[in-house]
Design a binder for these strands. Structure first.
Lengths: 303, 303
DNA sequence: ACAATGGAATAAGATAATCTTATGGATTAC
DNA sequence: GTAATCCATAAGATTATCTTATTCCATTGT
């Protein structure tokens, strides 16, 4: 007994005859005779009275018809659910991101995602690289976006999707920003009052390494603040200069609260990584997210 | 997508691997690979993550598994229901009978039926031959038992299942029943005070015809009563003699309330008919009933 | 009662679906 | 690195299912 047997049986029952059913579902009449006959043989029960003029359900047939209808409807539901998943009208997407990306980049991206696929259930967590990695492996995340060093897990694919520029910022009325002034040298910049994140922060490490590489260091003890927002506010308040991700200051630049300080020959970037399973099938919801990411930030495969 | 696809899919999901599933359900592993692969291709969705060591459901797979389980359970229910019908552990039997049969014969018969097949839902109506015939044709009865003349419907099969003896009865202390006395002649019997059913009753017609055929008639105006029970009581009370179906007086004979009056060379029987559809499939419940009837009263096919 | 008709069953051949054995390829575990 | 495990693929065999043509049967109409 399979769905096709039941489908044909149901067609006959609802059409009131083998020939009529055959017409309606575009199969030959003997095909139906055989299938229904086989079904009856398997069950050991007559399902139809053959009246000579059409057919009529037996008691067993009436009973089976109920099951056939329910089975048919359930099968249709199942296929529809699958079609919805495939067509991104149903599903779930869980993304993990580190702080900067999570705060300054993902909301926009997920807003666009929601606009395109409003029926996908979205989940979005900010966590550290280690947690994201773990949750990718155990399957609770579909993709992760991190600014930290790429993990060396072979099962995860790491793609640099964006090079984040770390830029020096100052209050817009900083003397060096008067028109006509030349860019600062790195040495001059290091002599400014500096505001930085605590040691151990990803951004701080990048900055320290870059300065060390160029043989420079802060010339005064820096002001240490625990969040990028705090640093931006402190710079805007005139407490000093800082180096922050370009991503984080779009609003303040537009509002004239902060300005980028030109620094001669200084270019500092860090890679932002997109993490997901390497050789694993991805749900359409995840594929669409990665596609959207690639669309906004054309990728460079790294490993 | 058919039940087999889903069954194999479910086996894989529940076994956690293609090979394990293949073992459990005794199919080759490639068969499963192909079926699941085809299912995935048809849906356009990956249902499993291939991990190298076993497999794991994707989100789409998890969703489909629920449907597959429900469909599987429903299919099992359907097959079980059909098996129950076939095994007479579920079903319905509607029998129609004319009065005498319905009162004096069917209760016993249906008692035995209920004992053998306690799960069959029984329905049993007393009606006239015409109604029974009509209800057989329109399908509300599975079989009919009548004492009337056989209908001439070609679509109904008429089988005489019993020859009912109509016997003369009297009070046990009737003078002619004293030991040693010879049987009455029919003429003498007709001279007795007679109790009969009203004209139009089946039994009355049989009696009238039999007497007419033998050139006899009641010599006194008979007492007319509307039911066999009333006639029996009247005879037992000594109001006269009567001719009634042998079936109806078993209890009274045993209790000594009535006696059969020996009548020389008089033998009056009428056929009892079993009616059902001629060329139509019968439900197991009906087949079992007809079987039981045949068992108790070996049949003589008439038409 | 008779042929006519409508509709299901059957037969035969063709086609498609599914299975099995054997083998390849990728991943994990020691 | 090597062996073991597991899924995918290939080829051939088997089975299920379909189609066309035809037969059989019950009803219907005359």
């Amino acid at each position: 007994m399979n769905l096709n047997h039941l489908f044909l049986f149901r067609a006959v029952a609802e059409a009131g005859g083998f020939s009529r059913a055959a017409e309606q579902i575009h199969v030959s009449q003997p095909a139906i005779s055989m299938q229904v006959g086989e079904l009856e043989a398997q069950l050991g029960l007559a399902l139809f009275h053959r009246l000579g003029r059409g057919v009529k359900l037996t008691a067993a047939g009436k009973l089976l018809l109920g099951y056939a209808q329910r089975l048919g409807a359930l099968a249709v539901d199942a296929e529809q659910a699958m079609a919805e998943v495939k067509g991104l009208r149903r599903g779930h997407l869980a993304i993990g991101a580190s702080t900067t990306i999570g705060v300054y980049l993902l909301p926009d991206l997920l807003g666009e995602y929601r606009r395109r696929y409003p029926d996908i259930d979205l989940q979005f967590d900010i966590a550290n690289t280690e947690d994201i990695e773990r949750r990718l492996v155990d399957g609770t995340l579909d993709a992760g976006l991190t600014e930290g060093l790429p993990p060396d897990r072979r099962e995860l694919e790491t793609v640099v999707f964006l090079r984040d520029q770390l830029v020096p910022i100052a209050r817009p009325d900083h003397p060096r920003l008067k028109c006509g002034r030349k860019p600062l040298t790195l040495r001059q910049f290091c002599a400014e009052p500096m505001i930085v994140r605590e040691a151990g922060s990803g951004t701080r490490e990048v900055i320290d390494r870059a300065l060390a590489k160029r043989g420079q260091k802060f010339q005064r003890p820096p002001l240490i603040l625990g969040s990028t927002e705090a640093i931006k506010r402190a710079v805007a308040a005139g407490l000093g200069v800082a180096i922050v991700s370009h991503l984080t200051i779009q609003t303040e630049l537009a509002a004239g609260q902060l300005a980028i300080l030109p620094l001669a020959g200084f270019q500092l970037t860090r890679p932002l990584h997109r993490l997901c399973w390497r050789n694993r099938e991805r749900d359409p919801a995840a594929v669409a997210f990665l596609g959207l990411l690639d669309e906004r930030y054309p990728p460079h495969v790294q490993s």
